[in-house]
Amino acid sequence: MKNMIQVEEVHKYYDIGSVKVHALRGLDFTVKKGEKVAVMGPSGCGKTTLLNCLSSLDDISEGKVSIAGRNIMEMSDDEKTEMRALEMGFVFQFYNLLPVLTAVENVELPLLLAGRAKNARTRAEKALKIVGLGNRMDHRPSALSGGERQRVTIARAIVNEPNIIWADEPTGDLDTVTSQKIMDILDILNEKIGHTMVLVTHEREIAERAERIVHMESGVIKREEFME
């Protein structure tokens, strides 16, 4: 199977105030197409940084990152933006949705931004139904609970039928019961649609749902665990 994500000797430095942080230290990493990988590690190990760099949200300092065979460092800002709109889905811990748009408007947004307006509304409605929010389409985020907001986010993440879904602590802001529900939805979708998924979390129960758990510490991968 093809490698959807390929990472070679990646280093990442950044500044916080006057302190320079070496967040990723020569990291190597691959994810196969359709694979579901969890990245775990203590705070400050670099897992979020890794996610940001792989998904083209952030630039690496050294090394190579390929997504679906393309070297993303050679892409322009606009090219990367379009790639994100058409091929990727994002589920973060907070601030996922634009507060001035309704649920369905939020979900169709990536399609509109990439210029694929034609069936956007229909596809968005369908995605919302899949996550069980067909009756909340015209609600603004402020009228939705935490769990509902994450479900809308998930609907948005799948509406463009992405190759990769990136999730960073998707249940971090939710209570236990809702967390489970959200993870269930993600699992079901992953089975049905077959996208690749990279999930960053610090909670063991969440990570155990993946096929492979990658343990990071101090900017490198310490070990890997295979589930099943």
Binding site: L57, T81, E82, A85, F90, L109, P110, L113
Partner: peptide, 10 residues
């Protein structure tokens, strides 16, 4: 930032 993440150009 989130909008940029899901595909909004600068």
């Amino acid at each position: 930032g989130m909008a940029r993440a899901v595909g909004m150009k600068r």
